[in-house]
Structure formats: structure tokens, C-alpha cells
Simulated scan of single mutants.
Amino acid sequence: MAGTTGGFTADEKAAMKARAAEARAAKKGAKAEDERQAVLDAIARMDEGDRALCTRLHEVITSASPDLAPRTWYGTPAYAKDGKVLLEVKNSGKFGQRYTSLEFQDVAALDEGTLWPVAWAVTTPTAEGETRVADLVRRAVG
């Protein structure tokens, strides 16, 4: 989302700096526990509404597929399979979005015909929504 002058917004610049720090940590051999803590820290920095929703999404995702590796990606909670990000949880406050979104990456096994969704908006945790998220995560893992 470029600003009116064609440059990056402050939020976009912060996300790029976060990604550079993540890459440096990975190059130095960041430990899984450190990456998991980085996810929890990213969630803790969110505003109250996003924090509650993303905490619950983190619990649902890690319960649905304990083998996914929590880590941050551009400063947001993400979950990797075999070292590649499978799913990102982009909280609404990250870029002033109307809703939090689950965004699956190209390694997710969600292919269905010639057209399928890779992002879902999440506004509030419900039992039905949590079941759907868990099902999507398990399907994406393959």
C-alpha cells in the first residue's frame, strides 16, 4: 500500500524491518523456542481485541497441527511447514484493516480445481469458526 507520494507507509517500513530481523535471526540459527516466543510477543503487542482473537487463533492452529513451527513473518504470527511459511495471521491493526485475516501461502495444500480461496477474514472467535480454522489448517498441511 503505497502512500500518496509513491513511497512505503510507516507500517510497511516497519514490516520490512521486521522481516529483515527475522532473516538475520534465521541465518544465525534461531531456536524453535525463540521463534515461538517471538509469535507470543507479537501477539502481546497487539491491541486488546486483536490480541484476544490472535491468541485464540494461535491456540487453534497449534492444536490442529502441532508439527507446524510458529514464527513471525513480517512481524506477524505465522506457522511454517518444513521451513516454509504455510499460514500467516495478519491482525487488523497491522495495516489498519477492517478485519484480521488468515492468509495461506502457496505451500498450503488447499488446491481445489482451478480456483480456491487462500485468505479468510476473521472477526470474532466462535466454536464454528474455530472448527473451520482447524479443518483448514489440517487440510493445508496435507
Results as ranks from 00 to 15, higher is better:
14 A>W: 00
37 Q>Y: 00
123 T>P: 04
113 G>H: 05
75 G>E: 10
105 Q>N: 06
114 T>S: 08
62 T>G: 08
138 R>L: 03
105 Q>F: 05
69 A>D: 00
73 W>P: 00
1 M>V: 01
125 P>Y: 08
26 A>H: 06
12 E>C: 10
130 E>P: 12
6 G>D: 00
70 P>S: 10
79 Y>C: 01
19 R>M: 15
59 E>G: 14
77 P>W: 07
35 E>N: 07
9 T>I: 00
4 T>E: 09
47 D>R: 10
72 T>G: 10
53 L>I: 01
106 D>L: 07
36 R>W: 01
66 P>R: 13
119 A>F: 02
79 Y>H: 03
98 R>I: 11
17 K>Q: 07
55 T>K: 14
100 T>R: 01
29 G>A: 06
138 R>P: 02
55 T>H: 12
114 T>N: 09
70 P>M: 06
85 V>E: 00
95 F>R: 07
61 I>A: 03
75 G>V: 11
32 A>E: 14
40 L>D: 15
108 A>C: 07
18 A>K: 01
89 V>F: 02
103 E>T: 11
79 Y>W: 05
49 G>M: 04
98 R>G: 05
121 A>F: 12
10 A>H: 05
42 A>C: 02
115 L>M: 08
129 G>L: 06
90 K>V: 09
27 K>W: 11
33 E>F: 01
13 K>W: 15
113 G>Q: 06
76 T>Y: 05
31 K>M: 10
119 A>C: 08
114 T>F: 11
